[in-house]
Amino acid sequence: MRIRATVAAVSGALALSAFAVPAAHAAAAAPNVTFSNVKVNSGKAITLGATSTVKVKATYTVTHPTTVSMSNVLTGPVLYRGASAKDADTQVVSDDPGTCTTVNSTTVNCTAYITLPADELYNSDAGTWKEGGLAVDKKTEAEKWQNDLGTIPVRRAAKLTADATPEPVKKGKTLTVTGKLTRADWQHGTYIGFGGQSVKLQFCKAGSTTYTTVKTITSSSTGALKTTVTAGSDGYYRYSFAGTSTTSAVSSAADYVDVQ
């Protein structure tokens, strides 16, 4: 990713750019807290269009000794791509410190929000991100970073079209179904053809709500799709793409064909 998010503290004049710690405080003891139960976007994949900005909710639990007052500690979730949540070049920290509710004398449950803007991502950032946590002592600004608290997919949004011709068509005649599979290009703010992908042509008979797969074809180098079928009955044709580890699943809008 290009630019990490900025995290601002909510108390007094204290403002921390991504919880950055001045060198003068480097020797201070890190907050004695532990993160667990981190869940970003309810565990669902985060999908970003070519120019979209997505803000997702994150929940987490923080445990601490009774000697630690959470009123003196700022916490927030971290998404990162590198070996450590602390790596500034591959991290996104929550927009603001989490809002926490006391469970008991040693436990709080917290909520925060993380914003991912597509125009700050490289296409290569799509894939599995790791979840972590960051705690900062309000007085000393000493940090604790915690790694490997879970994973979440971050995917490029896909688009898919379908057009069956001719319409109407006589029973037993050939229908040609064309379409195109594209996906978000975050680096250029547009959608580009997604080639070499398996895409299913599906049919739903008029009066039904169930689609069945007619055949599976492969998108061309430009993402183009084209195949033929024999017209049998009135109904809807669509293309359906299952997605990949870096690209979202998508189905095209259905195209109704009147068979005479």
Rank of each mutant, 00 (worst) to 15 (best):
I3L: 13
I3R: 12
V7R: 09
V7C: 15
G12C: 01
L14M: 12
A15L: 02
L16E: 10
S17R: 12
A23H: 13
H25K: 04
A27G: 10
N32W: 02
V38T: 15
K39R: 15
K44A: 08
A45H: 02
Y60S: 07
H64G: 09
H64P: 06
P65K: 10
T66P: 07
M70K: 08
S71R: 13
N72Y: 01
N72M: 05
V73W: 02
L74Q: 12
T75I: 11
L79N: 02
L79I: 09
D87S: 10
D89I: 02
Q91R: 15
S94F: 07
P97F: 00
G98N: 06
C100T: 11
V103D: 14
N104H: 07
N104I: 01
T106M: 03
T107L: 12
A118D: 11
E120C: 11
Y122P: 02
A126R: 01
E131Q: 15
D137Q: 07
W145Q: 05
Q146K: 03
T151Y: 05
R156W: 03
R156Y: 01
A164L: 05
A164M: 01
P166H: 07
G179R: 00
L181V: 00
I192D: 08
G195V: 06
Q202N: 10
K205G: 05
A206F: 15
T209H: 09
T212V: 14
V214N: 10
K215E: 11
I217F: 04
S219M: 01
S221A: 14
T222K: 12
G223P: 04
L225P: 01
T227C: 12
S233E: 14
D234R: 08
D234E: 02
G235V: 07
Y236T: 08
F241L: 00
G243F: 01
T247F: 00
S248T: 10
S251G: 00
D255R: 00
